[in-house]
Design a protein around this nucleic acid. Structure first.
Lengths: 240, 240
DNA sequence: TCAAAAGTGTTAATGATACACCCATGT
DNA sequence: ACATGGGTGTATCATTAACACTTTTGA
């Protein structure tokens, strides 16, 4: 087997310079998940670039020279939603040659989670920003449907393994709301008693000593997620 | 909360052009794991770029205009090892502003797995390519130690969840070799009988009807991983 | 016959699943 | 009093964890 000695000059070698002929653009695309009333939504914008005119696309932008990737994602999130410090996670980078009609655009995909219940009033609903039920999203501009699918899989995996779901619920929630969240996002049915036993054993919820109001039935107790308790217990795996 | 309307012109909008002022380079860095004789190794090169002269670095190169990210990683792997079709997986993209002294270089990190036992003779050992026991790697040039750590964590996670480990062993292996692999990579101790029972229950190994030769003790039976059986059984989770 | 690793079962503990009724509240 | 969701326990089953001796081979 032969070696390609040429590659011994590479990006990590002093000999090479950064070749400006290698022109490309780097963007960040955000899969923004929102949850409310037992439905998972995703934030989309209208695309007006041929050949995708009229299609929806993810929310994204070029990475600016002075910002790190996470910062770019956080900026995009903030510009679009007005919310600071949104939960964000890098998922995967997509760089196929022909994925963008304007040239070579490599994009780093993030997923983010938004408490729609809490922020509903504050979020913009206009031509540039719509929330679509994820079940209704059949296709998107560019390779954004593929990106969405992969980010959704990642979200589902994370939900099973880590307490990320709480970023989709209001600070105070009922156990049924929590169970519904898992059922909707993971697309499965859970047993109420087993679910509650499991959560009790995890010991990561704080009883708020409050109950629901404005419900026409017995009000449920409210809980909040307690990160400190989670860390204390050294759990590594939720497993629903 | 106010919106930044300016960002409604973005990379996914027809109005914007790809701004060539956003100059950056995109590279791929490969964390190449190799395994032999109960030790996990990683392929490194010497770096001669200030301020990291003399340090070791991961194997990487710029992504070329005509190649997808996976192709770039595969090319780098092939150039360095001479091996075609190496197991590869994208892990994460690192783009901090000052991570590279020559300017803004965003790098997509991959990990890859090599059967050192099988290819030992064919692999280059020269000034440009060394295999270092992973336990001895305390620091690397650039942010490569961080990249290594994250890729190692990812490998460990994958090993627990999917049958990737077989890419580190020769095609035919003994059950003890397999167990040792898990013990070394995951840094834990496994019970021989439980390990074997578990593997039998998974039903993913094919008995080769062969035994070890050249050992001065009772020779062990040889097995191989059978991908078709794995898929048939619809397992999703190894869990060691 | 000795050294060295191969190979093999059982028990106890833990965790997961399945399942049905009474309770508290608002209307 | 009725409708609505809130809240609770037990029994079975499956999985995991702990543990030690006999067998086969080459030297």
């Amino acid at each position: 087997m032969e070696m390609n000695k040429a590659t011994q000059e590479n990006i990590n070698s002093w000999i090479s310079q950064i070749n400006v002929d290698y022109k490309l653009a780097l963007s960040v695309d955000c899969v923004i998940f929102g949850y409310t009333e037992a439905d998972l939504f995703i934030a989309l914008t209208r695309c007006d670039m041929p050949p995708y005119e009229g299609d929806f696309s993810l929310v994204g932008d070029l990475v600016r020279p002075h910002e790190n990737l996470d910062e770019a994602a956080q900026r995009i999130l903030h510009d679009r939603t007005g919310l600071p410090n949104v939960y964000l996670e890098q998922v995967q980078t997509f760089g196929n040659i022909n994925r963008h009609p304007l040239g070579r655009v490599v994009t780093v995909a993030y997923y983010s989670l938004i408490k729609l219940d809490e922020y509903y009033d504050k979020l913009p609903f206009d031509d540039y920003m719509v929330w679509k039920n994820i079940k209704e999203v059949k296709s998107l501009a560019f390779d954004h449907k593929e990106i969405l699918d992969i980010c959704l899989s990642r979200l589902q995996k994370q939900m099973k393994e880590q307490p990320v779901g709480f970023n989709l619920l209001p600070k105070k929630f009922t156990l049924n709301q929590l169970q519904q969240l898992y059922e909707v996002v993971l697309d499965l049915k859970l047993d109420k008693r087993n679910f509650r036993r499991k959560l009790k054993s995890l010991d990561i919820l704080q009883d708020q000593d409050e109950v629901q109001t404005d419900v026409s039935h017995r009000p449920a107790k409210l809980y909040s997620f307690n990160l400190a308790m989670y860390h204390q217990n050294g759990i590594d795996g939720f497993l629903f």
